Simulated scan of single mutants.
Amino acid sequence: MPVVELRTHRVRVPLHTPFSTAVRTVDHVEAVLVEARDEDGRSGWGEATENWRVTGASLAGIEAAVDGPLRAVVLGRDPDATEPLTRDVGRAVQGNQAARSAVDCALHDLAAVRLSVPLARLLGAGTLRVPTDVTLAAGPAERMRSAAEQRRSEGFDVLKIKLGDPGGDDLRRLKEIGAAVGPGVRLRIDANQGWTPKQAVRLIGEFEQTGLDIELVEQPVAAGDFDGMAYVTARTGVPVMADESVWSPADALRLIRTRGADLINIKLAKCGGLRPARQLMALAEAAGVGVVLGSMMETHVGTAATAALAATARPGGLLPDLDAAWWLSRPPVTGGMVYDGAELCLPDAPGLGITGLAHTA
């Protein structure tokens, strides 16, 4: 029963609260959902999100890649042969990681649906519940403090703090947040490339002196500044995580060789899907580099695919960074994942448990 159709669906979903970083502010998510169907009418789902400032992906570009070379690779192929099929998807186009990821995830989801098992189980997971941190969007110190108090009351004990906003007082913001949440809350700092190497070292040193439980600092300097990443990593006692610097195994190897990061943030939309993400995870483990599985600002479809992979991780590792869909006012699909406090719950249903598009999408 080959793949007989590869469809694209545009969705636009508002956020319940605007989301700001050092790079951009958004109040909605625009994405292309990809649906792979077999002869029996069973569907698998994937997602590619428009993101001009980080991935460069556009809705038109995603649709062109999916409707053209990616569809040509997939149609008529056996969806149960996931490994060779997704390998060929990865080779079909240069760049276009978001589009490749959407098709890769849709094919993995379809394979799980055909076996009547959750996608997480197909990938080797022993659980369908995945804990997550939650992000505090960049803004004035008082507003971030209020948001931290609210997230803490909702059960989140790991907060990812967006700093690096030019002209902002990052130290004051951090102190306000720390005072609001008190002990027992771990803090992750994400500068989104907002600092110079010397500025990063100075600020991280000041952060350490606060006595707060700072778990890591993410992407302190520009994505392409590998020397700067190494400079910061060598001069701070707080673990440094690379995000925008890592798109491929070649990027990860460069960071490993230069000791440019203690951890890497693997995102499907950056690396091209579940297959390459698993390769990056294996590479990091072999090199003794930590991993956090994260997501772009995307919907329940893309977030759930990453959660299915995160569910395979060994217990005791760092929490995934999978609050993206938590910010949405509603899901664009029926069925699928839900949030339960600080945990993401995958349904005990075939694939991702998605039954179709929501009528409000």
Results as ranks from 00 to 15, higher is better:
Gly184Cys: 04
Glu208Gln: 15
Val185Gln: 10
Ala180His: 10
Arg202His: 14
Gln219Thr: 05
Asp227Ser: 15
Ile189Arg: 03
Lys198Ile: 13
Trp195Thr: 03
Asp213Ser: 14
Thr196Ile: 00
Gln199Cys: 03
Glu218Asn: 03
Pro197Met: 07
Glu218Leu: 09
Gly228His: 07
Ala179Trp: 13
Gly178Ile: 00
Pro220Val: 00
Asp227Cys: 09
Trp195Arg: 10
Ala180Thr: 03
Leu212Asp: 12
Gly205Ile: 00
Phe226Trp: 14
Ala223Lys: 14
Gln219Phe: 06
Ala191Tyr: 02
Pro183Asn: 00
Asp213Glu: 15
Arg188Pro: 11
Ile204Ser: 00
Val201Met: 02
Gln199Leu: 13
Pro183Met: 00
Val201Cys: 05
Leu187Asp: 05
Leu212Ser: 02
Leu187Ala: 06
Val185Pro: 13
Pro220Tyr: 01
Leu203His: 12
Asp225His: 03
Glu206Phe: 10
Ile214Gly: 04
Gln209Val: 09
Gly211Val: 01
Ile204Phe: 00
Gly194Tyr: 04
Pro183Gln: 06
Val185Ser: 06
Asn192Ala: 11
Gln209Ile: 05
Thr196Cys: 01
Gln199Glu: 15
Pro220Arg: 05
Val217Phe: 02
Thr210Glu: 09
Gly184His: 11
Val221Ser: 04
Glu208Val: 14
Ile214Tyr: 12
Asp190His: 09
Gly178Pro: 10
Asp190Ala: 07
Trp195Val: 00
Gly205Asn: 05
Val185Trp: 04
Arg186Lys: 15
Gln193Pro: 08
Gly182Cys: 10
Ala222Ile: 00
Gln193Tyr: 12
Ile214Ala: 04
Gly178Val: 02
Asp213Lys: 06
Gly178Phe: 08
Leu216Arg: 08
Ala180Asp: 07
Gly211Lys: 11
Asp225Lys: 06
Ala223Tyr: 02
Arg186Phe: 10
Pro197His: 13
Pro183Lys: 00
Val181Gln: 12
Asp227Thr: 14
Val201Asn: 02
Arg186Val: 06
Glu215Ala: 12
Glu215Gly: 00
Glu218Cys: 01
Gln199Val: 11
Ala179Val: 02
Glu215Phe: 01
Asn192Gly: 08
Ala180Ile: 07
Gly178Ala: 05
Ala223Leu: 09
Val181Ile: 07
Lys198Pro: 07
Leu187Trp: 08
Asn192Arg: 09
Gln209Phe: 04
Val221His: 03
Thr196Glu: 14
Ala191Phe: 07
Gly205Glu: 09
Ala179Ser: 15
Gln193Ile: 02
Ile214Phe: 12
Gln209Thr: 14
Ile214Asn: 05
Gly211Phe: 07
Asp227Ile: 11
Glu215Asn: 01
Asp225Ile: 05
Glu208Cys: 11
Leu203Gly: 09
Ile189Asp: 04
Gly224Trp: 03
Pro220Cys: 10
Ala223Phe: 01
Gly184Arg: 04
Val217Arg: 05
Lys198Tyr: 13
Leu216His: 05
Arg188Ile: 09
Trp195Phe: 11
Pro183Ile: 02
Gly228Trp: 01
Glu206Gly: 11
Pro197Ile: 06
Arg186His: 14
Gly228Asn: 04
Val185Asn: 09
Asp190Gln: 10
Asp190Lys: 08
Val217Tyr: 01
Leu216Tyr: 13
Leu187Met: 11
Leu216Ser: 02
Leu212Gln: 08
Asp213Phe: 11
Asn192Ser: 13
Leu212Arg: 06
Ala200Lys: 08
Arg186Met: 13
Pro220Asn: 06
Gln219Asn: 12
Gly228Tyr: 02
